[in-house]
Simulated assay, not measured.
Amino acid sequence: MPKFRKKPVEIEAIQFTGDNVDEIWDAFGAAGIYGPTEKNPDHLILTTVHGDEAPARPGDWVIPDGKPGTFYPCKPDIFAATYEPVNEETCGPECSEMHTETGRCEIARNR
């Protein structure tokens, strides 16, 4: 049976610390991100792509969900297992591989 690998997808995300709501609003805009409030002093409320509300607690990652003003929270352990930091530099137009932490991709290493 053939096997398939999920294509890598780059995302933007900010980890909510409990004190950085202004940073999140500056990056993504305030639409769809509410709180903390007196009723919910320890978390944000995110509007999801389905129109529901989802809480983002300190430590959770806030991730835009494609449609403007919609987001989803991601627990830190799931985020760490799913995503890795991206080094945005590439070797050049012939290279679609992102650089490794050493600063060299496979194409550069074989030059």
Rank of each mutant, 00 (worst) to 15 (best):
E106T: 14
G18I: 13
C91V: 04
A31R: 11
C91L: 11
E89I: 15
N110Q: 13
E23R: 13
A54D: 04
V62D: 05
A54W: 00
D22G: 00
K3P: 00
T70D: 09
P85D: 04
D77W: 06
E97T: 11
P55V: 08
E23M: 10
A56F: 02
N87T: 13
A27Y: 03
R57E: 07
E84D: 08
K39V: 14
V21E: 08
N40G: 04
P36K: 03
P58M: 05
D60V: 01
M1L: 06
N20G: 05
I107M: 10
R57M: 02
E84A: 07
H50V: 05
R5V: 15
T37I: 02
F71T: 01
I14C: 06
L44F: 07
E84I: 12
I11G: 05
F16Y: 15
T37S: 15
E88P: 13
E106C: 03
T70C: 11
P93N: 08
F16E: 05
W61Q: 08
C105R: 00
C74P: 00
D19N: 14
W61R: 04
R109S: 13
A81Q: 15
P41K: 12
M1T: 14
E101Q: 09
P2N: 09
P76Q: 06
T100S: 11
G103V: 15
P58N: 12
